[in-house]
Design a protein around this nucleic acid. Structure first.
Lengths: 222, 222
DNA sequence: GCGTGTACTGTACCAAATAACAGTACAGAA
DNA sequence: TTCTGTACTGTTATTTGGTACAGTACACGC
């Protein structure tokens, strides 16, 4: 259906999500920041390409002058839908199109705080928090969390090495982070992480990052 | 309905029309030009007033950072909405308009079996089934149930006498029905009910009826 | 009469944002 | 091999747009 390249449709999807979340389109700089470009020209080039293919219209000289053309009513319907995020392709932003398993028709505003995406829980590690295997949790996207909050952490799977989302209760003291499962069984051990010192020049990748905080759940069966 | 002044609602309407037509909000200068102000400060003052009254949100430092809050003309089909049933007015069918507290935008097909209506749980009587106070349960409407299923039972409140919905685990042996809470605390006692003999002419009201079976839940907060 | 809110004009500053120019690198088709 | 398109980095010029400050005028309630 799409004659857009992978990257281009990711960017188009980002524009849609920004419209959904903030009510207005992103700037070139917003796009560059989201995808990790160091220059906004990269974003501009993509926009021109997407516009040339007829998916958006660029209004010259206007800040945020991006108008969606195709799939316009899709934007409206996406207002009450949430992406279900499965596994995470390396180096992609979380809600990139490739990581979206499906869209579920649920009003994001049902959750408090508002949910930005969904994730299906597998396993029983959060049993004591009444989050069960097969539940779909709503996650409010944010980069940090308070002590004791349940977070969606992104970290490589111990065996496959592929990035995945897990729910854990978050505690931090200084540079020491503890991610604690909520299950008394001995198999469930807290994960201890020592954050790299924050010297601006460090190239080191943190072993995990917070994708957001737990904002509620859906249990799809009785 | 509107605590906005004449001028303020004109400006709000202009913002809406711009979003419809161009896909992004107007700038202060756009507004000033439209209404013939010679200075954009006039527009800014109006925006601040409208924001203060809760109709829009201004995102500081962002070009066109205007977000609509109220009055998004949401003409949505009920196809992807479910009624939240609160207390039940005497002699009304369950999903009669009077009993509907609100409509929540959730795809009924998310639940298995499909949900026909929702009900907010109050109390901890189903704690062991991992259904908590404040959870919103999806109910699949049907008149009977299998032994061991969790049902939404309609019965008069012991004090007020008003019909209400409660969740219980359902067991039936002959004419004897047991509605069992899922909580070990001694305060939660099973309810035992003797059904009236089923002679077709009986005018007798059964002391309870099954509104449907539990089909899953939504927990709206983290 | 005084304070408060609405409805503007006019000036000014500066961060936000667009947009153009000059590159590099790589992949696939002609 | 050359050409075209994608996917960027880096720099700079210029405009757009937000916001603060200082006013004027009028209406309304206390």
């Amino acid at each position: 259906m799409s004659d857009l390249t992978q990257r281009q449709s990711e960017i188009l999807e980002f524009i849609r999500s920004r419209l959904r979340d903030t009510g207005f389109p992103p700037t070139r700089e917003d796009i560059a920041r989201e995808f990790g470009f160091s220059s906004k020209t990269g974003a501009q080039d993509h926009l021109v390409a997407i516009a040339r293919k007829g998916y958006i219209e660029l209004v010259p000289g206007n800040a945020r002058g991006i108008r969606l053309l195709k799939g316009g009513d899709e934007v409206l319907s996406h207002q009450f839908e949430l992406p279900l995020i499965g596994s995470i392709a390396a180096g992609t932003p979380l809600t990139a199109a490739t990581n979206v398993e499906s869209w579920l028709r649920i009003d994001p505003q049902l959750f408090h705080p508002r949910a930005d995406f969904l994730h299906r829980v597998s396993g029983h590690s959060m049993k004591n928090a009444n989050i069960l295997d097969g539940d779909i949790v709503g996650i409010h996207a944010q980069q940090d969390a308070d002590n004791g909050q349940i977070v969606a952490a992104v970290m490589p799977h111990p065996k496959t090495g592929e990035d995945e989302i897990t729910l854990k209760r978050y505690f931090r003291r200084g540079r020491r982070v503890t991610l604690k499962p909520e299950n008394d069984a001995p198999a469930y051990r807290p994960i201890e992480i020592e954050l790299a010192p924050a010297d601006g020049d460090s190239q080191e990748q943190s072993p995990f990052r917070i994708a957001g905080i737990y904002a509620g759940l859906i249990r799809p069966r009785g």
